[in-house]
Design a protein around this nucleic acid. Structure first.
Ligand code: MN
Ligand code: MN
Ligand code: ZN
Ligand code: ZN
Lengths: 142, 142
DNA sequence: TGACAAACGATAATGGTTATCGTTTAATAA
DNA sequence: TTATTAAACGATAACCATTATCGTTTGTCA
């Protein structure tokens, strides 16, 4: 990975922001230092940083809306490979215990647990996850 | 909310799917029963169902990529109003205890907790959350 | 210093989602 | 029933986030 000024400033922008910024947010901020920078450059570098493990994305499923009709409070098991989501009943997880204070004035509505990992088919050798037809179109936006 | 055949079939499609489907997934399935249905109709009804609480969306932040440079495992406090995300150190939450088996063959990589609620400014009266300039562009796609 | 792969800026293309608009239909009351 | 009307539908354009393309510039390394 070549060292470029743009790359440095983009990374610092994410580091300095305690805000979990979007690419657009980063772009806005970086333009303060490099007015000529392209939004495409921000996206390209963000992707590079994600690939090399310098940054990570907050949510596994930000690509497309995922819906459910199960209105009872419950948790999820998520495959980071094919983005499949399995339900986990609330009673299957012991209540989460908070050991510290939340941001001042924050009112908790609920608490959701995500167990993240790889499903059986995604662990299989090679292209095995293509064999499972029940896996819908694998929302991974790549 | 008027009762229409399309509405009925769309809702049943989500009910029958244990897959947390996308609007596109629902569209594909509903076309089996109503070949002439429009994708727009699926989106419109999904929105209606979300508004009336018949369906819910799996992830609060599916609209745009959110990034972070904090690579230490940690949890999040999320405001459902403005989508602000605050970090919560891993040590601030007692380890999650699983009381049941996961889907067969699933390999856990990590476990993430989301405390969901309303931040101080979103709880304030009226348009108060607009006053806080540190809140970045409020990714809410409406 | 020179050669070359990598990265850049500009911009077109894609994919998911929302908006618009003319037509059809469900709900309601005569 | 039938007439009225607001709501919902299908088709399609518009929009926004993201990715791809391409000609130019720049970092790397011999
Ligand atoms: Mn679920
Ligand atoms: Mn974080
Ligand atoms: Zn999988
Ligand atoms: Zn808020």
């Amino acid at each position: 990975m070549a060292f470029t000024f743009q790359r440095q400033v983009i990374y610092e922008a994410v580091l300095d922001s305690r805000q979990h910024p979007t690419p657009e947010n980063i772009y806005e901020q970086v333009r303060g230092r490099i007015p000529s920078i392209s939004l495409g450059t921000v996206y390209k570098n963000v992707k590079t940083f994600l690939d090399t493990g310098l940054l990570k994305e907050v949510s596994l499923h930000h690509g497309s809306l995922r819906l459910e009709a199960n209105m009872t409070p419950h948790h999820h098991v998520v495959c980071s490979g094919c983005k499949a989501i399995f339900d986990l009943e609330e009673s299957d997880v012991a209540p989460v215990e908070l050991k510290s204070r939340l941001p001042k004035g924050f009112a908790i509505a609920r608490c959701s647990v995500e167990i993240i990992g790889l499903c059986a088919s995604c662990r299989g050798i090679g292209a095995s996850n293509k064999k499972i037809s029940t896996h819908h179109s694998s929302g991974a936006r790549k």
